[in-house]
């Protein structure tokens, strides 16, 4: 599904990713943890193709294609989805219009007919229901005035509608209470079908109680310093990152 080799990337002249390697097979769930400033969010942005995130070296193969050569929208059309840590508010563009354009862009890419308004609405309603988002959220401006939890649920709603092959969840648990966390996790779990792969970026083991990972990677200073199974996350929760010999005093944000 995804093979990252020797990835180096920088933002605003600052090197964030240094020789990052990661391989993800279809159907796998990989959790990525690590101290602040380790490069977790940067990895998500680099993979999705955000402007300003400059790749210095390395290769990323996504389903047999060179991901780094693709435009942002083409990465999405080929099945890559990033659930944002801070979803953007766009007043004036309705959630409905946004998702309809998006779904139909994906369909066009696959050579399918665009959905009619009625067909789309039916799908959108189902997706909203799955993440317990009231239907009037479809009519509202994209994320406009949504609470933190509603924004995160809106991201998962989009993921359900777009049916990606690789989902990157960037701190989809941050700022959520236990109930909202469960809604988000259930939404994610409903999309696990043995083929779709996930990268779950999180600070807390808590989310991984609900979304059980196949692998856990610890990211520090821009590279994977330790990989293991779900038990590694529990160990981090109990002991912090100190046992890995990492300096976590620097609270940079990345």
């Amino acid at each position: 599904m995804l093979t990252i080799k020797n990835l180096h990337a920088r933002v605003e002249q600052k090197n964030i990713l240094n020789n990052l390697n990661l391989t993800i097979k279809p159907g796998e769930v990989h959790a990525i943890m690590g101290p602040n400033g380790a490069g977790k969010s940067t990895l998500g942005y680099v993979l999705s193709g955000r402007e300003g995130y400059e790749v210095l070296d390395g290769q990323v193969d996504f389903q047999g294609q060179d991901l780094l050569e693709m435009e942002t929208e083409d990465r999405a059309r080929n099945g890559l989805f990033l659930a944002f840590q801070y979803p953007v508010e766009i007043p004036g563009v309705s959630n409905m219009e946004f998702m309809k354009e998006s779904v139909n862009a994906m369909r066009q890419h696959r050579g399918e007919e665009p959905l009619t308004a009625a067909e789309f609405l039916k799908k959108a309603k189902e997706a909203c229901k799955q993440v317990q988002l009231p239907l009037d959220f479809l009519k509202r401006g994209v994320n406009e005035g949504f609470s933190g939890g509603e924004k995160k649920r809106n991201e998962i709603m989009q993921m359900i509608l777009l049916e990606p092959t690789l989902c990157i969840l960037d701190e989809s648990d941050s700022g959520l209470d236990v109930d909202a966390l469960q809604v988000v996790a259930n939404g994610v779990n409903s999309q696990r079908d043995g083929k779709r792969s996930f990268i779950v970026i999180t600070h807390y083991q808590r989310l991984l109680d609900y979304i059980e990972p196949d692998f856990v990677h610890i990211l520090a200073n821009g590279k994977v310093v330790k990989s293991g199974d779900a038990s590694l996350a529990k160990q981090i929760e109990q002991q912090g990152y100190a046992f890995l010999g990492l300096d976590t005093s620097e609270e940079a944000s990345a």
């Binding site: 929208e73 999405a76 059309r77």
Partner: peptide, 10 residues
């Protein structure tokens, strides 16, 4: 970027 990350062209 947000719109493009959902497959919508620039």
């Amino acid at each position: 970027y947000y719109l493009m990350s959902r497959g919508i062209s620039r």
